[in-house]
Simulated assay, not measured.
Amino acid sequence: MRDIHGRTWEFRRNALGGTATLVSFTLVGCVKLCPVSDHYMNLVEDLLRSSGREARLVTLTINPDDRSEELRRHVDQFAPGTNRVFLTGEILELVPLLDSLGMPAGTTDDHPLFFLIFDRSGRMVRRISEATASPELLLDAVLAADRP
């Protein structure tokens, strides 16, 4: 996987563990659900900053392709803070990771929206659907997962 700056990441080794992690998904080019997900992540980042607490915020593309330039333009549209990590990758690395997280590689017309919470050890502890998600609920869940 690569971030928008071209740095290489191994999802389980670099993105999980050490602190709680909130994972979201975005499909570059989506105009329905993904902007909501991206906005919620921005609001969670703002709430974290104002609370003085920390957590890792990771957004994975569900576009199975190397679209780092498209992802960078997507990220620039809503100007997240510096604590967010956006990851993309080649089809052979991205699809198995998405499958392991319960997110099918999708099209702009057919993909679910949910968030995943991982605890300090990198274990998934909660899945929150779009229907019940709010920035406050996501913040509470990720902070709860950060307790030793």
Rank of each mutant, 00 (worst) to 15 (best):
G102M: 01
T132M: 08
A105F: 04
D109P: 06
L94Q: 07
A15F: 00
A55R: 03
R7V: 13
D110G: 10
G29H: 09
A133V: 10
L57K: 02
R7Q: 15
D110R: 05
T108V: 15
E93D: 10
G6M: 13
R147Q: 15
G89K: 01
R49N: 11
D140Y: 14
S51G: 12
V142P: 04
V28I: 13
T61R: 00
V36Q: 11
R12V: 05
E93W: 09
R67F: 14
A141Y: 01
S100Y: 05
G18C: 06
R13W: 05
A144W: 07
L101R: 02
D99A: 12
S100N: 12
F115N: 06
E10Q: 09
G102K: 00
R84L: 00
N14I: 08
V95A: 06
I117W: 03
V28N: 08
S51T: 12
S68W: 08
D38I: 08
P148E: 04
V95T: 08
R12F: 09
T59F: 00
C34S: 13
D38P: 04
F11H: 08
D66Q: 14
H74D: 11
D38Q: 02
V28F: 12
A141G: 02
I62L: 14
Y40C: 14
R12G: 08
G52C: 10
R127K: 06
D66Y: 15
G89T: 05
F11L: 07
A79P: 00
L43N: 01
L101H: 03
L43A: 12
R56F: 00
L71D: 07
E70F: 06
R120K: 09
E54D: 15
P64C: 08
F115K: 09
W9G: 04
Q77C: 05
T8H: 04
H39Q: 10
D3L: 10
F86Y: 13
L27V: 03
L57S: 03
R72Q: 04
N42S: 13
R127F: 03
M1F: 00
L94V: 06
V58H: 04
D146E: 06
P148F: 11
T59S: 09
P104V: 01
S51V: 15
N83Q: 15
L92Y: 10
